[in-house]
Structure formats: structure tokens, C-alpha cells
Amino acid sequence: MFKPFLAAFAAVVICGCSSIPIEKQDDRDPLQTLNRPIYDFNMDVIDSYILRPVTVGYVAITPQPVRTGLVNFTTNLTTPTDAINAALQGKPESLGINTARFLINSTVGVLGLFDVASSLGLKHHDEDFGQTLGVWGVGDGAYLMLPGMGPSTLRNLTGDVVDNVVLPEIALTTPQTIAVFAFKAIETRAQLMAQEKLLHESLDPYIFVKDVYFQRQLYELYDGNPPIKEEPEDFDEDFLENL
């Protein structure tokens, strides 16, 4: 099942490395010669032939109320992870809100299918272990383009392992964890359809993706109040999460 993708990926790396357009030295991206062909593979193979077609079909056959309920349900499942990270970051308000959200939505909200907590003014606080490491003073590390997952950094890759493997395993089985991850990837891709034009019209999509990723990480690390505000014009801050 995976052999065609591995072969295609190997071909992209081998054939692409000799003609990779290298930008001016970027200290954040020392692995650019490897990252660029992986980006091409993600976009030209995985997104074009798998993720986007699946997402288009999902949007076409799934009513919006059902989609909203599924989003609420998966968000509620991962809310305890947000609460744990809020505690590790020393954010008692976020800890309290996320804990209250989980209790309310898991009961009154019918296992999280309905976001009752938001109607009570308890808005979701997204806290991940990558942010936790940042709060603890850990630097980004090298920029990474991961096959099938998209942009990351050494710090955030470590955070993703903790958030998506270590902590969920406390309450979820491995198949359930994979199912949640797959659904979030499809739903996030659906929300990004409107942003495709910006990516395609950029002079260098690879650099565009990288710059937006770092801006978004800075925005999240400082809870929406970064010391230097650098946001791309007319651009959704959720872009690129699962490209």
C-alpha cells in the first residue's frame, strides 16, 4: 500500500536535490535542501492525490451540522491535553476554563457533540506541548518539513509526539488516536480551501509556507499578543496546519 508513495518520495528527493532553488541563507532552515523536496512531495502527491480529493468528497456528502458536531467532539476529546499544558505553562485561567469546558461539554453537551461551554462564555484555549516547551525557554530548533504532515520545528515535533501520542494514550486507544488525527487533518484541509489561491500566487510557495508557519507559532506562543506583530495580509491564521 505504501510502496508507491515511498517510491515517489524517493524519486522526488533524488531528482529534485540537484535543481532545488535555494533562498538566501535562513538560519531557521538549515535543512532546506531536504525540506524542499519533501514539501513538493506533500503538495504534489499526498495533497493532490489523497488529502484534497478525500476532503472534497467529505465536504460534499457531510452536512454542516454533522461536521460541526464532529469538530466539537474531537476538540472535547483533546481538551484534557490543553488543560495539562495550561498547567505546565503556569496559566491557571486557561487550566480552569479548559477543565470546565470538558466537564460541561462531556455531560450537558452530550459527550462533546454540542459546544455548550462556548455559549456560556468559556472559549476554548488551545495549548500544546510545543508551546509549553517555548514557555520553558526551549528554542524552535531547525525548521522541518515532515512527509505527510507539513511544517514543524524540532521543538514542535517533540511537542506533537507528546500531545498526539503520549497524553492521548492515557485515555484513548491507538486506533482512536489515529482516527482523531485523520479527522482533524481532513477538517482543517476543508477550512483551508479558500486560502489556496494565496499559496498558488506566491512567488515561492515554500518560503511563503515557512514564513506563515513561524508567524503563526509566534502568535500562539504569546497567546495572540506577540512582541512583534507580523501577520500576512488577508490570511487566515489557521492556514498550513495540516498541509
Rank of each mutant, 00 (worst) to 15 (best):
R36E: 04
T33F: 01
V166W: 07
V13Q: 15
A117N: 10
L154K: 08
M149Y: 13
A182F: 07
Q32I: 03
P65N: 13
D160T: 08
F102K: 12
Q25W: 03
F2A: 10
V54A: 15
D140C: 12
R189T: 02
V161H: 06
P232C: 08
P21C: 06
V12I: 15
D47S: 12
N105K: 11
L77W: 03
R67Y: 04
L144R: 13
Y213E: 02
L133N: 06
F2I: 07
G130I: 08
E93F: 04
R52T: 10
F214S: 10
N156A: 07
L167C: 03
Y58I: 04
G69F: 13
E237P: 06
E241F: 09
T99L: 08
I228H: 11
G139C: 07
S202C: 07
T99M: 06
I207D: 05
D238H: 14
E233S: 13
S202Y: 08
N156H: 09
K3D: 06
F114V: 14
L192A: 10
L6D: 11
G109I: 08
S152Q: 04
K197E: 11
P80G: 05
D163M: 05
V212P: 00
Y219S: 03
L199G: 03
G150L: 06
I228A: 09
D27F: 11
I186F: 11
N76I: 02
N72T: 08
H124R: 14
L192M: 14
F129A: 04
V110Q: 12
E196I: 13
S118E: 11
